Amino acid sequence: METYRHYVSGVFAHRDQAEKVVSELVVAGLPLERVHLFDKDSAPPAHTSTESSDVVLKDIVVDGAIGTVVGTGVGALLTVAMVAANVTLFVASPLIAPLVMLGWGAGIGGFVGASVGAAEKAKPLSALVHDAIVNGSLVVVTETLSAEETESAAQIFKAAVGDYTDAV
């Protein structure tokens, strides 16, 4: 059974606006423990682990493996090209040099692939909150546990800051 969990947030320039939204959310029935106001002096929120918290690690492993295969292929092509060009490295060590080239190709390919896997495709909410706080704004984040709570919170934020975009 999946639990419903959604985060609704708003960014505010002034503390009084943010505090007004917090009080409206509490009046609407959201417990104060699930309504958070973040500013530059706030402690970072506690991270709750989810089933998908190792998605980035899986992406790094898969992209690293793909990068290693591609890097090995590129290393093999470079080895053949250097042998054809009669580069002196291959004359001095005809057995070790091709293996070194393959290894370097695989290593560089794996590093590039892992870097691609680690690159964020979309900023998570925590990064957006951090960016807003660093730029002097206040952020109100509320955790909703039902569709009704989400709709109620969204209406309060919409009234306070204008239209919104739901990034699921």
Rank of each mutant, 00 (worst) to 15 (best):
M1H: 11
M1R: 05
E2L: 02
T3I: 02
H6A: 04
H6E: 09
S9R: 03
G10Q: 10
G10R: 10
F12M: 01
H14I: 10
H14K: 14
H14M: 08
H14T: 13
V21L: 09
V21I: 13
V22C: 09
G29A: 09
L30D: 05
L30S: 10
L30E: 03
P31C: 06
L37T: 04
L37F: 10
D39F: 07
D39H: 10
D39Q: 08
K40P: 01
D41Y: 05
A46S: 06
H47K: 09
H47N: 09
T48Q: 11
E51A: 04
E51N: 11
S52Y: 12
V56I: 15
L57D: 08
K58F: 10
I60N: 09
I60P: 00
V62N: 08
D63K: 10
A65Q: 01
G67N: 03
V69M: 13
V70D: 04
T72S: 07
L77F: 15
L77S: 07
V80T: 09
V83F: 09
N86K: 15
V87H: 06
T88G: 07
T88P: 00
F90H: 01
F90W: 06
A92C: 02
P94W: 00
L99N: 01
V100N: 03
W104Q: 04
W104T: 13
V112P: 02
A114V: 03
S115L: 15
S115V: 11
A119G: 06
A119C: 06
K123C: 00
K123A: 15
K123R: 15
P124Q: 04
L125Y: 05
S126H: 10
S126W: 09
S126R: 14
H130V: 02
D131F: 01
V141K: 00
E143L: 12
L145K: 08
S146T: 15
S152R: 13
A153R: 13
A153V: 09
Q155S: 14
I156Q: 08
K158Y: 12
K158F: 07
A160Q: 05
V161S: 13
D166A: 15
